[in-house]
Design a protein around this nucleic acid. Structure first.
Lengths: 133, 133
DNA sequence: CTGCACCTTCCCATCATGGTAAGGTCAAGT
DNA sequence: ACTTGACCTTACCATGATGGGAAGGTGCAG
């Protein structure tokens, strides 16, 4: 099948399929006489795997590792679990950071009347809040 | 003062100070005879404002708006509050998305023995989890 | 006068993705 | 046979926020 159908089936844009080929995440696709790329269900399966890993927030490099582990019948499940735990820890760190930002903003916002007058604790906070490095 | 000291005082890298000038977030700095940029405490104040807004996750475009509101004595605090609420909503959306990823990953991970054997629900999930959407 | 810290501009890289331009391929309709 | 339109190809540029590095100028202290 052509790249467009592969894209429709997997939810990965044609643009990204070509990109994944360029960076070696997937092997070079077969070509028809027309020079069009040609995909089979093995390729679809691999792209689906990548798509789901992306949806779960894995980076390209992590997906590269996951694909290697997927194809390695002698891997231990501990390897996969370790990679996943690392990613969970990364997510936790980001979630925590954004939660702190949110809390600070909510505090400032709650102190702001939000009316027609110019006085605003949010702007004042930004203008003079002490550093915490 | 030179850009290095401005950087030290504000926690904004010299690289980024030049960048903010290039994109018009701050006015072009005065120059000494040496062509070195020269900063005063007004500039330091503005850079500190930017730094704190960045730390709270505001985008450059949002900071541009905040700086305009900061300088506008006739603004209403409602304008500032609205911008802040928009940003809080964006943060909430990201936090929720990452929380969903985290929960899915935690479920897969909990089902994985994490031992020497190759069987792994995480890999199996990625290889065949049905699409949702 | 030399060394060193600092500054300047310019270009390139990241990460994942999209846009666009210029052109080739193919099947269906006239 | 010819046109139309959908599809494909490569190649280049853009995003946002930041860093790296090269090549060269400035200024001060030893």
């Amino acid at each position: 099948m052509q790249i467009g159908e592969a894209s429709r089936l997997t939810g990965v844009s044609a643009k990204m399929i070509r990109h994944y080929e360029a960076i070696g995440l997937i092997p070079s696709a077969d070509r028809r006489d027309s020079n069009y790329r040609d995909y089979g269900h093995h390729d679809i399966h691999r792209l689906g795997f990548i798509r789901r890993a992306r949806d779960l927030g894995f980076s390209i490099d992590q997906i590269r590792d996951l694909l290697r582990l997927w194809g390695d019948t002698h891997r231990s499940s501990a390897d996969v679990k370790a990679l996943t735990q690392t990613h969970i820890a990364e997510l936790d760190a980001k979630i925590r950071l954004m939660g702190e930002m949110r809390a600070t903003l909510a505090n400032l916002s709650a102190a702001c009347d939000g009316d027609h007058r110019p006085d605003c604790p949010i702007i004042e906070g930004l203008a003079g809040m002490p550093h915490r490095h």
